[in-house]
């Protein structure tokens, strides 16, 4: 009797500590302000919202590497990409072009249609639903934003260990092997977007800064409708409508990272 009663009290005490502290802390935090106990980031009035942003690239609309240039240039200008770096080892690439058997190495048949074999495809960060780079980062400098599924980088927290680069199966990440600021073309400088410093990793951010003010990503805007952007989990979004009507493929789907960039071939 005695012992079971004591055990009960002890258990109850332990549970009380566990259950009790969180509400107590919340109450304490709330006592200072009004009803908003938790800090949160308020969305801009014009901000575009989604559960998981996704992109469909209609590759039928592009016929040569030249057709892809407007999108790549729009991105480069928009994000202060140091395009004057000539050493390909040190290149910074957010969106670039690759041949089919490089963009889709596991899907390249031995005998491809001639057009597809020699055509260029846009490749960029896939903003995976299960991003392996985010798993690898030891400081949470790269993270999946819960509000809209974008895989983002905090350039100020990154320690430059490059574990994310090893973890990314799409080669989507670039490292600043030297100060990039000297290599941004003068006329291309965008004062509304930060430049980076040497020693940090960077990659496509699905134009999070443009979405926040109600604009579509720069490459989508420059694509003249060939790139469709929208919410993957809104059944009525443009992206979902296009996905319903067209057969699409994704890069290295078998790895289970669930890329959010789809291609109509």
């Amino acid at each position: 009797m005695e012992s079971s009663r004591r055990r009960f009290l002890k258990l109850a005490g332990i549970s009380a500590v566990g259950l009790g502290t969180a509400p107590a802390l919340n109450a304490f935090a709330a006592s200072g302000g009004h009803d908003a106990a938790q800090p949160y980031v308020k969305k801009g009035a014009r901000a575009l919202r989604a559960k998981q942003w996704a992109m469909v690239i209609d590759t039928r609309r592009f016929h040569s590497a030249k057709d892809l240039e407007p999108m790549i240039e729009a991105c480069n200008k928009s994000h202060n990409i140091p395009t004057k770096i000539t050493n390909t080892d040190h290149e910074i690439k957010w969106i670039w072009e690759a041949e089919f058997h490089h963009a889709f190495p596991t899907k390249a048949s031995k005998f491809l249609s001639e057009e597809i074999e020699h055509k260029s495809f846009l490749v960029l960060c896939n903003h995976c639903e299960n991003p392996s780079c985010v798993r690898a980062c030891p400081t949470k400098a790269t993270f999946k934003r819960e509000s809209d599924g974008i895989v983002l980088m905090d350039f100020h927290r990154c320690i430059g260990c490059r574990f994310c680069m090893a973890a990314c199966p799409f080669g989507a990440r670039s490292f600043n092997f030297r100060d990039p600021r000297d290599f941004i073309p003068e006329d291309d400088k965008n004062l509304e977007f930060p430049t980076r410093m040497k020693g940090v990793v960077e990659k496509c951010n699905f134009c999070a800064e443009r979405l926040a003010v109600g604009k579509e990503p720069a490459c989508v805007e420059a694509s003249d409708g060939a790139i469709i952007f929208g919410d993957l989990y809104d059944p009525h979004s443009h992206v979902r409508e296009v996905l319903k009507e067209n057969y699409t493929i994704r890069r290295k789907q078998q790895l289970g990272t669930e890329p959010s960039v789809y291609y109509i071939v």
Partner: peptide, 8 residues
Amino acid sequence: DLGQPTRI
């Protein structure tokens, strides 16, 4: 090996 060792 770190790009930004001061942030270790």
